[in-house]
Amino acid sequence: MKLLTLNFLTCAIKTCKTSPASFPLHPRDAELEIIESEINLPFLRNILPRLMWEEIRVIASELGLPSLPTTPPTREDLVEGASQAQATEQAEGEAVAEVEEVPSQTAKDLHRILLETGIKEGKLVCGNCAHEYKVMEGVANFLLPGHLV
């Protein structure tokens, strides 16, 4: 399960959802896997404003991944020499639009952590009720036992 998913997940128990402690879920005993994929700049740019950055930093640090910068990257940060390209575009008009955008190191790092890094086996734990959800073969299971439904 790619880490980006955690940005949109909380505890499945209704009474937990209103508690801030239920988000994000905390990985435990996680075995990570890397599934390489082609970087998609427009996708990263689109998803950027939706990221709960502070929470993603917490997850990354809990997983022992390299620490993320304290402030989220901007859209411009994702492209190599973005400010330069903008200047040229103004001067030459449409000709520049055909130049392929080159992903910056920031974009590559973001792609690596959100889309290529995944939890293969382990648990996701709610910070409010401590319920554990299992991740098996890369799929997280949120079905609740009968007494919790």
Binding site: A12, K14, K17, Y133, N141, F142, L144
Partner: peptide, 11 residues
């Protein structure tokens, strides 16, 4: 993910 429509794990 695996989840039940009546207990969805989304904010």
């Amino acid at each position: 993910i695996v989840a039940d429509n009546l207990s969805l794990p989304h904010p």
